[in-house]
């Protein structure tokens, strides 16, 4: 899956956990997902589960760096770093 496909899949996932009245289309890739009101703070946990399930990201060793979950771009960067070389 290339980055654009990963982005599409991530956006589809975010639609399932977003607050109903916050238009995802109006959000750019750098915007904070919680700060913009798109998701509840606790929904970060669902993003973590998504990354573990769909992209094999392993948080057990290093824990979660909150910055890596802040925006669509930072999540895509995390997926890229976690991909097997």
């Amino acid at each position: 899956m290339d980055r654009e496909q990963q982005r599409g899949a991530l956006i589809e996932f975010l639609r399932t956990i977003q607050k109903p009245d916050c238009p995802l289309a109006e959000l750019d890739d750098q915007s904070g997902l919680v700060e913009s009101g798109l998701i509840d703070s606790l929904a970060l946990l669902q993003i973590v589960s998504y990354l573990e399930r769909s992209h094999g990201v392993d948080f057990t060793e290093g824990g979660i760096d909150p910055e890596e979950l802040r925006s669509i771009q930072s999540i895509l960067d995390l997926i890229a770093r976690a991909a097997p070389k």
Binding site: L44, L45, V48
Partner: peptide
């Protein structure tokens, strides 16, 4: 209680 889900998952 709800605060702990994030901490237990993400924080050392």
């Amino acid at each position: 209680p709800s605060m702990w889900a994030l901490t237990l998952k993400g924080s050392k």
